[in-house]
Design a protein around this nucleic acid. Structure first.
Lengths: 216, 216
DNA sequence: TTCACACTGTTACAAAAATCACAGCGAATA
DNA sequence: TATTCGCTGTGATTTTTGTAACAGTGTGAA
């Protein structure tokens, strides 16, 4: 089976979100061009992405909503629930925790960590908050492989190395800094300031030129 | 001047962040391969990106840090400070506001909006919070072109249309839904749940296969 | 002054991604 | 039964993006 590119994975995850927001009893089926309109990608791209995961629709009815979501689930999700921890319960960390809590069946935030003793050893937003000293222990105990990092930039590198050693294989990094790690960890950076800068740049471009060709 | 691709813009903004974090009195110059190590992109790519914005270094000394940052500023930033508003002061909105406040010279969050009367008409986290009814007025008055959307998915589309009419040209959308707008607005979507799902997916892949080739 | 060196800037090339375009299909119609 | 229709699945093609390679350059060593 050929390697599916990262971008395609992102699209597939997006398709699923869109499809899940539709009501199958209203419209049991959907055509590639409809999903194209909903997602902003081309219908050809969608057909191709679905081909990549081996899903087939009907030339007449299109794709069965339930069926397609099920196939996407199988492809995207793990069998077992995946355990996630969030490190840093500052304002951002708490917001993320609150936001992501119980949104997906196969993903659960099972622990949070903070260095502030005022926050540790209690349940915050439905999740137990541990001290940093318990990091390795809890990661092992709770079988955590994914971490959301919401700590200051200065502390991020050291923390990343530490959790990597503890067995973490995926980091969603909200700290505004790059992480330098071996390539047996997947890192997704989400610097919010860079995002604002990007939007500011392109909004200016539009202001000058009147439009933009491609929207993601 | 040839169109610089969106990805290249993102890289340039990242280069700037990295370069700004270095101390020019420690190291006045930097080579493309050093910036490559710091950014995770190849040195060839960096040279090419810098070529795109017309910046030249010295084959002997590399790039002058101050000089390069200045060139990046000129390219990325507007002359005038750009005014940004944040809509939705829930937990996430407040976190974003707090996080982005005063981080960049040329970007300023000049207003926030919320529908909750308990929050409106006061200064929250250093920014005046207005009621939604004042939206058009304030956007016009304060010359706002960029909005950070941190409201529930259900309200996002309607709000997006409204602010678009009010003159907004860039939206950083944290609501987990797509926005359907004319293409004279730039939209950057930042669904946090999709991000977690993506990391979860690739972390699993690494767990199975032992490594990953390309990190962003 | 000549040479070697390590870098940049840029062109040529390769890889990847998106798009096109069309065969094939099943249903509906007549 | 034959015909049309609009869709899917997919090979071919184009476009975009990234990489490799190398000529050109200023510096410092000999």
């Amino acid at each position: 089976m050929k390697q599916i590119p990262e971008k395609a994975i992102e699209r597939l995850i997006l398709y699923r979100r869109i499809l899940m927001s539709l009501n199958p009893s209203d419209r049991p089926n959907i055509f590639s061009h409809e999903l194209a309109t909903l997602s902003g990608f081309s219908s050809a791209q969608i057909r191709r992405d679905l081909m990549a995961i081996g899903y087939s629709g009907s030339p007449v009815k299109g794709y069965s909503l339930n069926n397609l979501v099920e196939s996407l689930n199988e492809f995207i999700d793990s069998e077992e629930k995946q355990h996630v921890a969030i490190i840093g319960l500052g304002q951002l960390g708490r917001a993320i925790l609150n936001y992501c809590k119980n949104r997906r069946k196969k993903i659960e935030i099972v622990a949070s960590f903070d260095k502030d003793p005022q926050k540790t050893d209690q349940v915050i937003l439905g999740t137990h908050c541990y001290g940093i000293d318990k990091l390795e222990k809890i990661i092992k105990e709770k079988n955590i492989r994914v971490v959301i990092l919401a700590i200051p930039a200065e502390e991020a590198q050291e923390m990343a190395e530490r959790i990597m050693k503890a067995g973490i294989r995926g980091i969603l990094n909200y700290a505004p800094t790059n992480l330098y790690l071996d390539n047996d960890v997947f890192v997704e950076n989400r610097d919010m300031i860079l995002a604002v800068e990007k939007v500011a740049y392109f909004s200016r471009k539009i202001d000058k030129e009147g439009f933009v060709e491609s929207l993601s």
